[in-house]
Design a binder for these strands. Structure first.
Lengths: 167, 167
DNA sequence: CGATATAGTTAGCTTTGCTAAATATTATCG
DNA sequence: CGATAATATTTAGCAAAGCTAACTATATCG
């Protein structure tokens, strides 16, 4: 019945893609006021809620390349949101941690994007809010499937920037 | 009542944002194989399904600035996905239309992103698929709310291309 | 007609992503 | 032990996609 795809594609794919694109495009504007851009904020969030970690671990968590994370970390550091030190056990490794200011920023919900998104969600009808809430676990699993396939697709073996090895 | 927010933010805001970010980040990789990037594909999609339109209209539909759409249109044209002609009624205006090749591209579902997304959706449990499908109208309205607020926020009046001269 | 508004373009900057290659450090093996 | 390999990060350089400011060409209006 409904899962019969018209031309090989699930009917939800296109709208979901489109909505996600627009959502982020609209939210990007909120960053400007905050002075912390999307990529930085996202990395910072991982750092605040996940605790200090190496650049490689952060790059993996954020699904970006090592050089990209190097740059993001430099910017976060320069702006006072993160601090780096050499890892005890391994001098190659950097231990990046969020500063108290960053923790305050994130914990206080001063994130412009999320405030804007939150306000918009609140403006919806209760049924709409409910539908979105109900879809979140499914979206989470969807992202997991994609992530799994992406890493499967390019050589099962990692080698990117080190694999699962926290200290 | 039910939306008792912890710190002023709706609990759905953060996961929704995070999932959207990851989703697009993962899908972006599919573009490369196709040779049509995200922004171009999205604009092209509007063109294919919405019919020929001016650059201004397309910029508004895509929520990007006029120069950005100028560039996208040039690239689409150069790559053979779009064609331009001067509008009959108004020589300032450009009428951009999708080429047959673009229509084939989109209609055949040869879009790498959407194929990947579609495949991932299909790998989900039926309940998850259902939850995502059920949330789409709500997401649509969410984006509308955001869009509305964005345009309210900067200069009530439309005038999406011509930027108001400041004295 | 001339002033002003509109549609699009050009120029130039920023952010964020990438790959390839360099550097520093640690691990391993003969 | 020392040469070699692997790992973590950085540097350098490129591209996409976004923006604003300023310019050109065309319409419109008083």
């Amino acid at each position: 019945m409904p899962s019969r795809r018209a031309r090989g594609q699930d009917p939800a794919a296109e709208p979901l893609h489109r909505h996600a694109l627009r959502l982020l495009r609209l939210l990007r504007r909120e960053d400007e006021a905050l002075g912390v851009s999307a990529a930085r904020l996202s990395a910072l969030s991982v750092l605040v809620f996940g605790g200090p970690m190496s650049l490689g671990a952060l790059a993996e968590a954020e699904q970006v390349s090592a050089p990209t994370m190097t740059r993001l970390a430099q910017e976060l550091e320069r702006e006072g949101w993160a601090r780096r030190e050499v890892a005890d056990a391994d001098a190659r490794r950097v231990r990046l941690s969020a500063t108290p200011a960053a923790m305050r920023l994130l914990r206080r919900g001063r994130d412009g994007r999320l405030d804007a998104l939150s306000a918009a969600i609140d403006a919806l009808a209760p049924d709409d809010r409910k539908a979105i809430g109900a879809a979140l676990p499914a979206l989470d699993r969807l992202v997991q499937v994609l992530q799994q396939r992406a890493s499967d697709a390019r050589g099962d073996l990692p080698s990117r920037t080190g694999r699962r090895r926290l200290d």
